[in-house]
Simulated assay, not measured.
Amino acid sequence: MTRADLRSQAREFAGKIQTLLNQTVADNARVTAGFVGEERMMAVGANLQLRDLSTKPIALLSADKKMRCFLDIQYLLFLEETSDHYMTVKTSYFGVSGSADAKDPFFHYDYERHKAGYTEAHLQVLGENTGLTPIMEVLCAKRKKKSMGELHFPVGGRRFRPALEDVLEFLIDEQLVQPKTGWQSALDRTREEFRDIQLRAAVRQNPDLARDALKGIPEG
């Protein structure tokens, strides 16, 4: 697989995300892809600016004219160094905020492949907890900041981390977003693709376990 192949797949991936957003929780959402310097990686993001690869959160549909949530989406993609050269996510970020220019989101879901120090897939909630803060001040000596927002809550690891569709469904279920008609089927369709990819990767990494599991399936 060549640099051109990665560009093609990354752009297709960006297009799928853009279509999903506009079918479910947004109007005129824009998601694009661009190469990261001279490296063999592609950035995909919400309102991605190619000159500096910065992103800007997308306005989500709301039942109120004055109050709404905004969603920032960022991916960094590369080619897996195997015989098949799969396009792989190096990092991903889904951040929810109250404006397109907010300095900090309310919360964000992160995935950082091979991250040291804490779990690769995690959730951070930028808030304070009056009971937790004094405990962190005593026990978390190595942390510069000692607030709940600095904690990395694990969310399923590399293979079972939340998909973008899970985050969108959460926002809809909690009434933070006013979805479009047919949103559930749209989310289910693309989420199934994500889970199939993760399952295939898990099978490739654990072929013996997969064979053992299949042995237990009764003949139909």
Score class of each variant (00 low, 15 high):
Leu187Arg: 04
Ala121Val: 09
Val96Asn: 01
Thr88Ile: 05
Met148Thr: 10
Ala141Val: 13
Val167Ser: 03
Lys65Asp: 15
Leu176Asp: 02
Leu168Ser: 11
Met67Thr: 13
Ala116Pro: 02
Ala63Lys: 11
Phe107Tyr: 01
His152Lys: 15
Asp188Trp: 03
Pro105Met: 08
Thr91Met: 00
Arg159Leu: 06
Arg159Pro: 00
Phe106Val: 13
Ile73His: 05
Glu165Phe: 01
Leu168Ile: 15
Phe94Asp: 06
His85Gln: 09
Pro134Ile: 14
Val125Asn: 03
Arg159Tyr: 04
Ala116Ser: 14
Cys69Pro: 08
Asp173Leu: 14
Ser99Val: 11
Met148Glu: 11
Phe170Leu: 12
Lys180Asp: 05
Val167His: 02
Ala186Cys: 02
Thr55Arg: 03
Thr190Asp: 09
Gly131Arg: 08
Leu53Lys: 09
Arg191Tyr: 00
Tyr111Pro: 06
Ser97Met: 13
Glu192Cys: 04
Val96Phe: 06
Tyr75Gly: 08
Ala163Gln: 08
Leu79Phe: 08
Phe107Trp: 02
Ser147Ala: 12
Ala63Gln: 09
Ser54Cys: 01
Leu187Ile: 03
Pro57His: 06
Leu176Ser: 06
Gln175Leu: 13
Leu76Ser: 11
Glu112Ser: 02
Asp173Asn: 10
Glu112Asp: 04
Lys180Ile: 09
Asp173Tyr: 10
Asp64Pro: 05
Phe160Thr: 13
Leu60Met: 11
Pro134Cys: 13
Met136Trp: 01
Thr82Tyr: 01
Gln184Pro: 01
Glu169Lys: 06
Glu120Ile: 03
Gly182Asn: 04
Ser147Trp: 11
Gly157Ile: 02
Ser92Arg: 11
Lys144Tyr: 08
Asp64Tyr: 04
Leu187Tyr: 03
Ser92Trp: 07
Glu169Cys: 02
Gln178His: 14
Met87Phe: 08
Asp166Gly: 06
Lys145Arg: 15
Glu174Pro: 00
Ala141Lys: 14
Thr88Val: 08
Gln184Ser: 12
Ser83Asn: 05
Tyr109Pro: 01
Ser97Tyr: 12
Gly157Phe: 01
Leu139Ser: 14
Lys144Glu: 13
Glu120Trp: 05
Asp110Met: 03
Lys56Cys: 07
Asp110His: 03
Tyr118Ala: 12
Thr119Glu: 08
Phe94Tyr: 15
